[in-house]
C-alpha cells in the first residue's frame, strides 16, 4: 500500500534544499561577492549546512499525515531563490552616478567632513591605525622606476595608502583603472574619478571610491566606461583640504575587471 505524502513536508523539504543549494552555489562559485563581502564566506557555508540538517529532520515528517496544511511561511526561502534566479546584473555604475546609490564612499575618501558614516569607518582614519603596515599587509610594490601600477586586486589598499601617506607620493607617476565617475555638483569641469564601487557590508552600501583626476578632456569621457589612466600625483588644496590629485597624461579604454567591487580590507 502506497503511503500518502504530506504536502507541507514535501514543500518545506524542497524549499530548504533549494535554499541550501543556493547558499552553497553562491559561496562555492564566488558569486556571493556580488552581494556581500568576503568576510561572510564561512557564514554562508554555515547557513547551507544548517539548512541541509533541517531538511534531514523533515524526512520522517514526509509520510506523517497532517490535516491542517500551511505553506505561506516557505516564501521566506522561495523569494530569495527566485530573485536570485531572475536575470539581473551587478549594480552598474550608472545607478551610482544617477544618485541611486549614494556617493558616501567618494566623499569619505575625498572630504571626510561631509561623510554621513562615522569617522572610524573612514578609510583614512582606519588606515591610520596601521599606517606603515598597509604596504606590508598587502605587499604593495612600486615599479623599478618608482612609478605605481595599481592592479585590480590592490585598488583599495593602494588608495588608502596614497591617502594616508599622501606627502610621500607627491610627484609619483600612477597607473590606475576604474570607471569614469563625475559628480557635476561638486566637481569642476576638468575633473573626474576613475572609480570602483566599494562595498562595506553588502550591496546596500555600495559607493564609488577613487582618486580625483584633472584632465582637460574630462567632460568628453563617457560616464561609466572603464578606463586605464596614467598621471602624476600632486598634493594640492582641493575643496579646503590638502589632497592627492592626479594630473592625467594619458587615458585609454580598458575592460571591466572580473571582480567589479572592492572591499575595504
Amino acid at each position: 500500500m502506497v503511503k500518502k505524502l504530506n504536502p507541507q513536508a514535501v514543500l518545506e523539504l524542497i524549499c530548504l534544499l533549494l535554499f541550501s543549494a543556493m547558499m552553497f552555489h553562491l559561496a562555492f562559485s564566488g558569486k556571493y561577492l556580488s552581494y556581500v563581502t568576503p568576510r561572510m564566506l564561512p557564514y554562508l557555508y554555515f547557513t547551507s549546512t544548517a539548512m541541509l540538517i533541517w531538511a534531514t529532520f523533515k524526512l520522517p515528517m514526509l509520510f506523517r499525515p497532517q490535516y491542517k496544511l500551511r505553506a505561506s511561511h516557505c516564501l521566506l526561502l522561495i523569494i530569495p531563490v527566485i530573485l536570485l534566479l531572475l536575470p539581473h546584473g551587478t549594480v552598474s555604475a550608472a545607478d551610482v552616478s544617477n544618485g541611486l546609490v549614494s556617493d558616501v564612499g567618494l566623499s569619505q575618501s575625498t572630504n571626510s567632513t561631509e561623510s554621513a558614516t562615522s569617522a572610524e569607518e573612514n578609510p583614512q582614519n582606519s588606515a591610520n591605525q596601521y599606517d606603515d603596515s598597509i604596504i606590508e599587509q598587502f605587499g604593495l610594490e612600486k615599479n623599478a622606476d618608482g612609478s605605481i601600477a595599481v592592479s585590480d586586486e590592490l585598488f583599495y589598499p593602494w588608495l588608502s595608502e596614497i591617502y594616508t601617506n599622501k606627502d610621500s607620493y607627491d610627484g609619483t607617476t600612477i597607473t590606475i583603472k576604474g570607471f569614469v565617475f563625475r559628480d557635476s555638483a561638486t566637481m569642476a569641469e576638468n575633473e573626474f574619478v576613475p572609480a570602483r564601487l566599494l562595498m562595506y557590508c553588502c550591496t546596500a552600501d555600495l559607493a564609488p571610491c577613487g582618486i580625483v583626476c584633472e584632465y582637460d578632456g574630462a567632460s568628453s569621457l563617457e560616464a561609466d566606461s572603464w578606463m586605464t589612466v596614467t598621471g602624476v600625483i600632486h598634493v594640492v588644496e582641493h575643496q579646503g583640504e590638502m589632497q592627492p590629485i592626479v594630473t592625467i597624461t594619458s587615458v585609454s579604454p580598458a575592460v571591466k575587471p572580473n571582480d567589479e567591487y572592492v572591499y575595504p580590507w
Binding site: L26, Y32, S34, Y35, V36, M40, L44, P80, L83, L84, L86, H88, T90, V91, C201, C202, T203, A204
Partner: peptide, 11 residues
C-alpha cells in the same frame, strides 16, 4: 532593488 535586497538577505 534586487541586488540590494539580496545583499541584505544574504548578510
Amino acid at each position: 532593488l534586487v541586488n540590494v535586497f539580496l545583499g541584505i538577505i544574504l548578510q
